[in-house]
Design a protein around this nucleic acid. Structure first.
Lengths: 338, 338
DNA sequence: TTGTACGCGTTATCAT
DNA sequence: ATGATAACGCGTACAA
């Protein structure tokens, strides 16, 4: 028989202590005009009565909820959980308490418009730019992988291009001279950025870009990676590349499979690398060199950005997240030098 | 240059339309005492001015937030994401809108005590019973795998025992007569319940329980499963069991590995099954029979329970979630009959 | 040092 | 059919 959930208010404390509500309010917010003695009495009463301030009343009055909303497309996969943990880590360790509340991104984003939160972090790629701009009328917005120049919109990015440049550099340093590239889905923004990084990496090292070494899988799946490279190798007597960079790990794992099927050995005959550091990169043989984003650190950076915004520190409106290359067996030394 | 995020209130609409605030409020809530004409005018003004009701003011007045809080230990793994999707699925498809808010379970559960939500779903096993009981003073609480008899606490369970009974029945039906059991971590509640199910399954079929066929891995890991069975088999010429039930999938996968290493064939020489339906059960050979909980459906059931509670329908305070056996190769027919 | 009074935005009661 | 006004719980300027 669910009860009535009686609520204790400062009024109750006032009555209990025989003082006015404002005295209670002042005492609880540790205002210096209240005598230490009454403060003590009020605090004890508050504890005795199990008083907790009503957040709705407080938010209404202060025009601030002390809540940060995170809008995710879903909770699947390793990325979002880790980012959320990073955000929570920062938010837990500050004195001024902020609650992190997570929700599915939906059409209307009502939590924002109804002002249930003070700041929104939109991790959902499907939310349209127009909607984000509209939402920024209500509160500051932090985006992920969007590029919207607008007041009170703060964009965060993974530096895909730089990361792929670094990977290309690595292969060249390892002795590769004919580096192939497997493209992912052509409609993807990431695909383009990563490809650019590959080309810039070559350029930086004075290696001419050769379009014949670019293979378009037009998807980010293991299957397409396998198929693309398999079809290629069927008509060739020898490997056209001594290194192969793939737009993501799935493609690389598929390509690795295709190479094995055609009796080429990695990393003996060619090096191979992917992007994203998915779990499976550890299970394949040889295990796969890849680019990893430190999502936990990213979460922490977002949370710090959020706090700066809320504290009106006018932080930079663009934040780049750095990446690390995870070197594994698939790029240990090349032995054949053709 | 963050702006000031001007807020439009019913006051603004009232001014705009030249009516009083109460008229606006009535019009927007479609009260029958307001003429159709002014309703129309007010609605248009609201749309023109981009009016959205302030949820804090509304909650303060109505003593209800229309928000449901879900407290999770983390977002890792396949279970919680799926449950959340199930909850969201129900909450999206009702006319009376409720927002789902997800948070990490922390020490103080301030969102509850501050009345930022109307009902809490606590999915975190670490939250103490005492705290849950305390929290139930503030609002209805739905728990997971707890057993707390108390007003306004609603417990939900997976029926581990029944599931394991069913699995034992299946093996017996397939011809097994000497069924072994691998225990998981002894401190786990689930471990106990599942073991009970195994014993009851035997009993139901008139097969005496034999403690020599119980192997204690004392953990839920693949490694411990492998180790436990491997050590066992080293000192034996033949298999002591013709079926092996493991307290979870990790253990079963480890045990499977050990059997292979000792040149036993599954399911030819013995059947094997696990519990949880983790993804890897599909990748091992033979792929693994297991017990699956339909977490999406569970999420839907929780959400429906929540709505019944909020609508004062006085639902049952205990909800059992059912399971399904997923039959795969590891329990196809036994061929050797010793 | 403490109390009175008002406002935050909304809804609901009571007049008009 | 519409408007004035009180109330929700809290915070704070001002008065005492």
């Amino acid at each position: 028989m669910g009860g009535d959930y009686a609520m204790i208010t400062i009024k109750d404390i006032a009555k209990y202590c025989g003082v006015s509500v404002s005295t209670v309010s002042y005492a609880l917010s540790n205002n210096s005009t209240i005598s230490e003695k009454t403060k003590q009495r009020v605090r004890e009463a508050a504890k005795a009565l199990n008083y907790v301030p009503n957040s709705n009343a407080r938010s209404l009055k202060q025009k601030s909820t002390h809540k940060i909303g995170v809008f995710v497309p879903g909770f699947q996969g390793p990325i979002h959980p880790t980012i959320l943990a990073g955000i929570a880590h920062i938010l837990r360790n500050i004195d001024e308490k902020y609650n992190m509340i997570v929700t599915f991104a939906d059409e209307d984003m009502s939590l924002i418009k109804q002002r249930s939160i003070d700041l929104a972090i939109i991790m959902d790629a499907k939310t349209s730019k127009d909607l984000i701009v509209e939402l920024s009328d209500y509160m500051p917005i932090i985006t992920f992988d969007q590029d919207i120049e607008h007041a009170s919109i703060y964009n965060t990015f993974v530096d895909n291009t730089k990361a792929m440049m670094n990977l290309t550099n690595l292969m060249i340093k390892k002795g590769c001279r004919r580096i192939g590239y497997v493209l992912g889905s052509s409609s993807s923004y990431h695909n383009e950025l990563r490809f650019t990084g590959y080309k810039e990496g070559l350029k930086e090292n004075g290696i001419p870009f050769n379009n014949d070494l670019v293979y378009n899988a037009d998807a980010f799946t293991e299957f397409k990676g396998q198929e693309t490279i398999s079809i290629l190798l069927e008509n060739l007597d020898e490997l056209p590349f001594d290194g192969l960079i793939c737009a993501n790990d799935e493609l690389a794992i598929g390509a690795l499979q295709a190479l094995k099927e055609h009796n080429y050995q990695v990393p003996k005959d060619c090096l191979i690398a992917g992007f994203d550091d998915i779990e499976k990169t550890l299970y394949v043989h040889p295990n796969l060199t890849t680019v990893k984003v430190d999502w936990f650190s990213y979460g922490k950076q977002i949370a710090e950005l959020a706090l700066e915004i809320l504290n009106k520190k006018n932080p930079n409106q663009s934040l780049t997240i750095h990446t690390t290359i995870i070197e594994r067996e698939s790029t240990s030394n090349l032995t054949t030098s053709k």
